[in-house]
Amino acid sequence: MVILSVLPITLQQGLAYALVALGIALTFRVLAFPDLTVDGSFPLGGAVAARLIVEGVDPSLAVAAAVLAGFLAGCLTGVLNTRLKINSLLAGILMMTILYSVNLRIMGRANIQLLFRPTIFTFMENMEVVRYVPVIIFFFIVTVIAKALTDVFLHTEYGMALRATGDNETMIRALGVNTDNATVFGLGMSNALVALSGALVAQDQGFSDVGMGIGMIVAGLASIIIGEAMIKPRTVFRLTLAAVIGSIIYRFIISMGLRLGLAPTDLKMATGFMVILALGIPALKGAREGKIHLRGV
């Protein structure tokens, strides 16, 4: 019964945050670039969308602008790393920190309410069904499209060069690919997905908050670890599928935990422990290489 009761929220959040997991899979797994921009680009998506909606811009245009903002933020992290030669982790942390101020500037305050504003969910609220039904269907469609587009892109000539950049940089440079540009573009794509998620989540929950990105990377990593434990990411299709499925299962575990008495305040700690356990247990067991081989970690 408990399981059934958490199902709607699990699917709704799992699918909405699957876009973040996809983005993280793109950087950590495909590019082998541990990008921490995510904690800043997720609220950036929310901030841009919320501000524009409040200004009277059409919600779908606002989402498009949010995606573009996320893309630019990711590209900037890439530029910090490739042109200014700043360590990849630090480049992400710098960008995340800078985006905190940027997000406050964009919103003009710490949060924006969207409850009585028109959003892309407004027409669903007027339907004759429980709200979560169309919302889940909507997030399902968006996630499936994002996953499919990512899959297709990674099989194109340039997408393959991007994968090779994460796999063997020496080789793909010798084959004529400017890996700096590939890294910048890949980070842009990843953060565009993350900002899309931020823009949609903000409208779904009815507000955008400057703190809504905290812990997003760790949650995304947890999703990917869970997903890859179930689906071996031998191909691109399976890699992105693992991210989506992992995200849903992660949200299920979280919802169950909350239902069974986990304090919401302890949520991020619990997620952190999940990641530590998953990465740490193989090491403690004495395995030289972790069973869950997570590139970029």
Binding site: H155, Y158, V177
Partner: peptide
Amino acid sequence: KRRGLSWG
């Protein structure tokens, strides 16, 4: 060569 967005 130039790498575009056509299928690999």
